[in-house]
Design a protein around this nucleic acid. Structure first.
Lengths: 214, 214
DNA sequence: TTTTTACAGTAACATTTGTTACCTCTTAGG
DNA sequence: CCTAAGAGGTAACAAATGTTACTGTAAAAA
């Protein structure tokens, strides 16, 4: 009984995909709902399907052998996890970790449909390549950020991204959390946030950061 | 007169693609040869074809608004520039710069073949997605390197990559060149190289670096 | 309420990286 | 041969980032 999926697909992807594809998707896709903080994909995991975002947001992260983490980018409604797509096709293991940033809803499409649809539907092929392009550019942005910006700027960008994702300028975050996600230490973040506050760009509270000049 | 292309394709890609695809490629592909140091793709450039590596090596770089540069990864025989592929399909502009690291030979495949082959040849579709996956992982490695390693390790990795690409442990490089490609300064590189030499990991000479423990 | 825990501010210090300046040595060109 | 340019070594300093330690305070738990 998957009638409930079709309207969701039509709402989010109707302008992209032809009716026939939406129909096919409704038939085979599995609706998944995860709570904020849930791990959707972990390192080395084998993935048997491809997640298509409907609602919420997913945080894509990278981890080094010592367990240090770094947030790469976010996926929102309309996005698809291309890393997982390649996993599907190549039978490879995940190189990234995906965590629900908010309560999130997405569709799980079985692997074997990937190839078939790419051949059958131009709209799907275009969507897939467009997605690759977007993910690619997001990684490039991350690289720019790491290579060319100092921590101060990186922190500010981090906050701006959070605001975009949470759709609120009032962030509920501890300095420690930020430090984890940016792979630095709490003291450093406190120092830089204080500096941003003195510059009038944020307002700080306990577990609260308000982005002012957004 | 494109008879000369087919044997090249067969040699490098024969094990991957079916004969029919090789034939089609031979028909439409244009052979390009560039000298070491030549810029193949520049920022913001619009690309009208897709480069398939035959021989040599191409350096993929990123540049920030101030003109600072950073080497991301290299392409060699058997690789394809996926950034350009997405440019082709999406009519987008290049986000990267590609420079011949050695004298290089590649094929230029017209944009319109992309879609057609993806539908027609499973081997091509697999190749394309596999390539995306590889490029993706290379970017992730770059990110790891930037986020988790100090300059010392980054420099050592840089040298190892160079050795792989040039196929020689004796590198002909000035400290200045390295500094450019790693987005730091000459003095810093000299300092770290000296340190590596004291650790017995390299041997230095004028315009020469010999990687010892490779 | 009292106690405990998490959060944030700050100082002092260490380390890493970047900058400037100056030196020597090699190589290329006149 | 002499000179200029490029390459590399090094010192001294500056700035950015990381670390440790200690503080007060708010929130949560007992």
């Amino acid at each position: 009984m998957k009638h409930h999926i079709k309207p969701l697909l039509e709402e989010r992807y109707g302008f992209l995909f032809e009716d026939e594809l939406i129909d096919e998707m409704s038939e085979v896709a599995i609706l998944k709902e995860v709570r904020e903080g849930e791990i959707i994909i972990d390192y080395g995991q084998n993935i048997k399907g491809m997640p298509l975002m409907l609602d919420g947001a997913i945080k894509i992260m990278r981890q080094d052998p010592d367990g240090d983490e770094l947030v790469l980018y976010y996926l929102e409604s309309g996005d698809v996890c291309t890393m997982t797509m390649t996993c599907c096709l190549g039978q490879k293991q995940s190189e990234i970790k995906a965590v629900a940033e908010r309560d999130t809803m997405f569709l799980f499409v079985p692997t074997d449909r990937m190839k078939v649809w790419t051949k059958k539907y131009d709209s799907w092929m275009a969507f897939v390549f467009e997605s690759y392009n977007n993910r690619f550019n997001e990684l490039l942005e991350s690289i720019d950020n790491l290579a060319f910006n100092d921590l101060n700027e990186r922190l500010y960008k981090y906050l701006k991204d959070k605001v975009m994702i949470t759709k609120s300028t009032k962030l509920e975050l501890s300095h420690q959390e930020i430090a984890y996600e940016m792979n630095t230490s709490r003291v450093v973040i406190s120092r830089l946030l204080k500096k941003l506050e003195k510059e009038g760009r944020v307002q700080l509270g306990r577990n609260k950061i308000d982005l002012l000049d957004f």
